Computed example of a mutant assay.
Amino acid sequence: MHKVFIADDEAWIIVGMKKLIEKSELPFKVVGEACNGVTALEEMEKKKPDVLFSDIRMPGYNGLGLLEEMQKRGILAKVVFISGYAEFEYAQKAVELHAYDYLLKPVKQEKLNQVLSRIHEELGGDIERDEEEEVSLTVMQQIISEIQERYTENITLTELAETYKISTGHLSNLIKRELKLSFSEYIAARRIQRAKELLGDDTLSIEQIAGMVGYKDYFYFTKVFKKVAGVSPSKYRKM
C-alpha cells in the first residue's frame, strides 16, 4: 500500500481528497495530514510518505517552499500540487522544482485516478513494497545489464519482473538501490544522454533522434529532455 500525505489549510479539501483517493480503489492510504507547510514537513520526516498532495498557498511554507525544503532534507515523496490558482507562473515554478503533477481545484475523480495510476505503476505495481524476497547478485546483474542494453526499447518494469519471477514492487526497490534512481528515472537519464550525443549530428532531425532513443511522441520527448537536461533539445543543439 502506497502512503499518502495531504497538506492543505482548508479542512474540507483534505476530507474531499481522502474520499477521492478511497474511491479510486487503487492501493493508496492516507497516513497523515497537515494544515500548514511547517507541520507537514515535520510529519513527513516521521511518516515517510510515497506521495504528497499539497496546496500551493498555505501558512508556514507554501507548497513550493515545502517542496524545496523536502528536497534539501532528502524526503523523496512524489509531490502533486493542488490549487485553485490557475496562474501559469505557479505551474511553471512547480515544473522547475520537479513536482510530479499539478491539479486544479476542485479536483476531478478521473484526473486524480490518472495521476494515481501513473504513480502506482512507477512505485512498483500491486505488491507491498516491504515484502521479503531473495534475489541473487547474479540475477540482479543480469537485470541491470538487460536494462542498459535495451533502454531505447519499450522495456517495462512489469516485463522484467515477469521474466525474472520477482514481484514488481520488490524489483523496483532493488533497481533503485543498485542504480540510485528509479527504473523510469534511469531509463530517461540514459535516453537523454544518448540524445545529447546524437544532437551533435546535424543531419538528424530532433524528431528522428526522439525515435532513435525510444520516444515515439516527439512532444513527450521534448518534455522529458527539458526536465532532465534543463533546456530543450533545440536549445541544447545550439549550445
Rank of each mutant, 00 (worst) to 15 (best):
S54K: 10
E68P: 08
L103K: 07
F53C: 03
V51E: 06
L67F: 09
F53M: 04
Y61S: 04
G63Y: 07
N62F: 09
R57H: 13
E128H: 14
I127F: 04
N154C: 04
I82H: 06
E132P: 05
H98V: 03
K108M: 13
M44H: 05
V139G: 01
E87W: 06
S54L: 07
Y151A: 08
P59T: 10
N113I: 09
L123D: 01
S145W: 08
F53E: 02
I127E: 10
Y85M: 12
L123G: 03
M70D: 04
Q92H: 15
G60R: 08
E128Y: 10
A94T: 04
E133R: 09
Q71G: 11
I144M: 12
Y90K: 10
V80L: 06
A94N: 03
E121H: 12
T156Q: 10
M70V: 05
M70N: 05
S145T: 13
K46N: 12
E133V: 14
L157K: 04
L97D: 05
L157R: 02
V79A: 01
G63K: 05
E45V: 09
L76I: 09
E153T: 14
E133T: 08
L104V: 04
E149L: 12
G60M: 00
L137V: 13
A86Y: 11
I127W: 00
M44L: 10
D50V: 06
M44D: 02
S54Y: 03
R57K: 15
Q148L: 14
T152H: 09
M70P: 00
H98A: 11
L66E: 03
P106F: 04
Q92P: 07
H98E: 13
R73G: 07
A94L: 09
L112I: 08
V95W: 10
V115D: 05
E149Q: 15
M140C: 02
K111P: 06
L66W: 02
Y90G: 09
K72S: 09
L104R: 01
L103E: 09
A86T: 15
E122T: 03
E146D: 15
V139E: 10
E122L: 01
E121D: 13
E121I: 12
M140P: 06
L123Q: 03
V135Q: 03
S83D: 00
I147F: 02
L137R: 15
V135M: 09
L67G: 01
D126Y: 11
I82R: 00
S83E: 02
I143G: 00
I147H: 02
N154P: 04
A94M: 11
E133S: 10
